[in-house]
């Protein structure tokens, strides 16, 4: 299949970037989107030009590295699918495809399609954990956890930290990411002791990183490769409200 790509090229955080057009005469429908970019890059290198920089690693939709804005949708048109799991068969012969980086003030561009998502790490560092040191744990079956609770915790824990929620949100809000972690730990008995301070700490870090606020657009869930539900955001709001009222520290 024949395609025309419009790819964002930018040599550094402070350089001006622009969309550059590339023709792909011979993409195969069975290629993954990243393999298609590999082919483009191989040709660029052979011509002595610099390849398009993009983050990727596992190519199995689990590491959260890949982060492409494809035709105005993070990770492209296919729901619940990361860029690396998107296959060319989802496009038509002759399509024009726009490829841009995830954009947000909190995700500065490093180069081309590569952005700095370390803000997410700092949100987790603020409280996205359970404070147990190695060796201090009781037997794993000491605390029974209902299957339902474990399953819902898993639904939330499935987040791969890709940042598509931020990229999709008109406000560049990180609510879905933060809510996913707060909910994952909040569903489990082990997560209760720190639950209130966790919500307060993670939200204030999230605000510090200058992500936008949530106005409940719902674009984040639609773009999320793991389809983390909006309900998680409601849970975060609830925990935050509760923490403010009961845990006035």
């Amino acid at each position: 299949m024949k395609l025309t790509l419009h790819v964002w090229r930018q040599t550094g955080p402070n350089e001006a970037g622009r969309l550059v057009t590339y023709d792909v005469p011979d993409a195969s429908p069975d290629m993954s989107f990243l393999e298609m970019l590999d082919v483009v890059n191989e040709r660029l290198i052979e011509r002595g030009e610099e390849p398009i920089a993009f983050d990727h690693d596992c190519r199995e939709g689990i590491c959260g590295s890949c982060s492409l804005m494809i035709n105005g949708v993070p990770h492209g048109p296919r729901r619940g699918t990361a860029s690396c799991q998107l296959h060319m068969r989802t496009f038509q012969d002759g399509d024009h495809i726009w490829v841009e980086p995830f954009r947000a003030r909190a995700f500065p561009i490093v180069r081309d399609l590569v952005v700095d998502r370390s803000a997410f790490d700092r949100v987790i560092q603020a409280g996205g954990f359970i404070g147990v040191s190695t060796g201090s744990a009781p037997d794993a079956n000491a605390i029974p956890i209902s299957k339902a609770a474990a399953d819902r915790a898993m639904d939330a824990a499935a987040c791969i930290g890709c940042g598509a929620c931020v990229a999709a949100c008109p406000n560049a809000s990180a609510m879905l990411f933060t809510a996913a972690k707060v909910s994952h730990l909040g569903f489990l008995p082990q997560g209760q002791p720190e639950r209130m301070r966790r919500a307060l700490a993670m939200v204030s870090q999230m605000d510090l990183e200058h992500f936008g606020g949530c106005t409940n657009y719902g674009e984040c869930t639609a773009a999320c490769p793991k389809e983390i539900p909006l309900e998680m955001i409601a849970r975060l709001n609830r925990d935050y409200l509760k923490a403010t009222l009961v845990a006035r520290d």
Binding site: I130, A137, A140, L185
Partner: peptide, 15 residues
Amino acid sequence: IDQCVAQGVPFAREY
């Protein structure tokens, strides 16, 4: 396994 469960790893469970 004890350590991971304490950290909040949501292992599969029975009813």
